[in-house]
Design a protein around this nucleic acid. Structure first.
Length: 646
DNA sequence: AGTTCCTTCATTTTT
DNA sequence: TGAAGGAACT
């Protein structure tokens, strides 16, 4: 009855929604009987297609919400999709909508025993991974400097779906051996890393046809966002769920594939039509974001790439302003010119600061802009820097929570066993380590064991006893909400007190952050749900919308749009980046440039400097090769300093 | 346990 | 240049 009512009531809404689509979008929404590939250019309404399609399926009763799986890459994309979906229909509750990782975590929690891991696994972040590898390298007497590289290598293996025992992992190499130990180690911690979330689920599907079948039956429709950025593991996962592509709809833009260095395989999208016979391909080319000259410039640039499926975005709106390319003397002047232009637009044309963005290739480039903006009084924020949950104080409290939830999480144990200081120093931890590896148990259990069976210095014995008693008592408090648990941790361990004593600006800020954490915690009932959230959704608690200019890397700008976009540092060596040139991966850099240009609604402003100080050394660079690839009819080239005050 | 000095090394980082 | 990590000192 409920269902019928919903259909009747909402029918008009979905009709309205369908009517607002262009022909291609409509085609993409209503095609359900074949594998569907939607090639969606920048600003052509792919989220609209995805959300309308889900609503269309539900409202017409083609499937129940719980039979629809919609995967995205980022939490941001998932959140946006959720919001817009519920804006169209109120019947979307129950849709499996989330990132690849969160969906996999959900599946893995229900079938963990099938791969022999604890159902209460904790999820390691990049920091934890690095610690584990450093630890292993130390044991193997290898220089710890190699650690970041090895973590990256292990992650790439996992992206490719390669586990340590795979023959392609060469055990005679250092990396291969570390990988093996690494995997054993984190298993002993009852932990999984991000890559594992995918890999374990693939393994479960492979080894348990019955489990796989339940999911195949369940998901009648599968929608994938940003398909160009899927890696091999994700691809394998998808193919298992939908071997023939029945009910599969993948949306992506090969021209915006910018994460190959993280294991993304553009090949997945290029190969889609071969993978899934009888595929229907829809191209979304009408752009609703940018003006004509901006799109023209972007199109001319990207046409220089060989490896692409080919599509040309266009707009029904006017040409707008040409893309401005300005030569500056150095980075200092670059920041000055951009700063003045923003101020000018702000004063003369009422441009809100929040509608302007400075996009750069690499993080170090943000500094000159920041300094200039401070000097000129332009409010700004650097997007994508230190994340809220990456802060020390937040990680500490979360480590307590992780340990309470999963005592075998030795990384969490090690992090906080002596935080705040309670006299359990490095030598004590070393002892835990020895016993832990002798008896093949976790650090926590080893500590307990030592406490019971060995004689310890009285002060050490006392504080260790206190610590373990505290953790044990918290483990029994199933009645507590997660916020209460955090409060008790802060009070009873003396963590908050220690910060209060400090009375520095920094400790004040930390206390503020902890307050914010407690606030965020109110949303979560129990400890597990919060830990899951914090591990998978590394987002900050929502901050108020500031009216400030955004400064960020091109990578973090994907999916965003601004009225005015300033692209700095278009010099060969900076952009395209030297290392990419050496690796012969200029096409990906070009896609990055394409992403940058197409972020703008009304104005794209590109600068290149004749001289730039890199590593404290002045360097004269050639203008970026991409500049000459921008079709001149869409460009205004300014070579004089005065030209910017038009 | 905390500090200070010295060396090293400088892409991108949705999860 | 300047940040980060490790060694060496206090």
């Amino acid at each position: 009855m409920q269902i019928t009512e919903n259909i009747l009531r909402k029918d008009t809404d979905i009709d309205k929604e369908l009517q607002s689509l262009n022909a291609e979008q409509y085609d993409a929404v209503v095609t359900l009987d074949r594998p569907l590939l939607v090639l969606s250019g920048a600003g052509t309404g792919k989220t609209k297609v995805l959300t309308t399609k889900i609503a269309y399926i539900i409202e017409n009763g083609f499937a129940f919400p719980s039979q629809i799986l919609a995967v995205t890459f980022s939490n941001r994309a998932a959140r946006e999709m959720k919001e817009r979906l519920f804006g169209i229909t109120s019947s979307a509750m129950g849709v499996w909508l989330g990132t690849f990782h969160s969906i996999c975590a959900k599946i893995l929690r229900s079938h963990a025993e099938a791969v022999g891991i604890s159902r209460d696994f904790t999820i390691l972040d990049a920091d934890d991974q690095l610690k584990v590898v450093k630890q292993i390298l130390k044991e193997m007497n290898i220089d710890a400097k190699a650690a970041p590289g090895i973590v990256a290598k292990i992650s790439r293996w996992k992206d490719k779906g390669i586990s340590p025992d795979n023959p392609s992992v060469d055990k005679t190499t250092q990396e291969g051996r570390v990988y093996k130990v690494y995997q054993e180690r984190i298993v002993s911690y009852d932990s999984v890393d991000f890559g594992d979330l995918l890999l374990y689920v693939v393994q479960i599907f492979k080894e348990n046809p019955d489990i796989l079948q339940t999911y195949r039956n369940r998901f009648k429709y599968i929608l994938v966002d940003e398909y160009q950025d899927t890696n091999v593991a994700q691809y394998l996962w998808l193919r298992m769920l939908s071997p023939l592509g029945q009910g599969l709809c993948c949306v992506g833009d090969d021209d915006q594939a910018i994460y190959s260095w993280r294991g993304a395989e553009v090949g997945n999208i290029l190969r889609f039509e071969k993978d899934f016979p009888n595929t229907k391909t829809v191209r979304l080319e009408q752009n609703y974001r940018s003006t004509g000259h901006i799109l023209g410039a972007a199109a001319s640039l990207i046409s220089n790439n060989q490896m692409r499926l080919g599509k040309t975005i266009w707009t029904a709106d006017g040409d707008g302003d040409k893309v401005i390319v300005q030569r500056v003397y150095n980075g200092y002047e670059e920041a000055q010119v951009v700063s003045e232009k923003i101020e000018q637009l702000h004063r003369k044309y009422d441009l809100d600061y929040k509608n302007a963005a400075v996009l750069v290739r690499a993080g170090f480039q943000t500094r000159e802009f920041e300094e200039r903006f401070i000097a000129n009084g332009i409010p700004y924020k650097v997007v994508g820097g230190l994340k809220f949950y990456d802060r020390q104080e937040i990680k500490d409290i979360v480590a307590y929570m992780r340990l309470i939830y999963q005592p075998n999480d030795s990384l969490a144990f090690e992090r906080i066993v002596n935080v705040p200081k309670r006299g359990i120093g490095a030598s004590a931890v070393a002892k835990f380590y020895t016993v832990a590896s002798e008896k093949n148990i976790s650090l926590y259990l080893a500590a307990k064991d030592i406490l019971e069976h060995e004689t310890l210095r009285p002060s050490l014995k006392h504080s260790l006893d206190e610590f373990i008693k505290f953790i044990e008592s918290m483990r029994l408090r199933h009645d507590l909400k997660s916020a209460d648990i955090a409060r008790i941790i802060l009070d009873e361990t003396g963590y908050a007190e220690a910060l209060k004593q400090e009375k520095t600006l920094e400790s004040q800020a930390r206390l503020e952050n902890l307050k914010e954490l407690l606030q965020a915690l109110e949303e979560f009932e129990d400890l597990p749900s919060f830990i899951e959230h914090i591990s998978l959704v590394m987002d900050s608690p929502k901050t108020e919308e500031d009216n400030v200019v955004s400064i960020m890397t091109l990578h973090s700008a994907k999916g965003l749009e601004f009225d005015a976009v300033f692209l700095g540092g278009w010099e060969d060596g900076v952009f395209p980046h030297n290392l990419s040139i050496q690796e012969g991966n200029v096409e990906e850099e070009r896609r990055l440039a394409y992403v940058g240009i197409t972020r703008a609604r009304k104005l794209t402003f590109i600068t290149y400097a004749l001289n730039r100080k890199i590593h404290n050394q002045w360097q004269a660079n050639m203008p970026s090769r991409f500049l000459s690839e921008l079709s001149p009819e869409h460009i205004t080239h300014i070579t004089g300093r005065s030209g910017c005050f038009s």
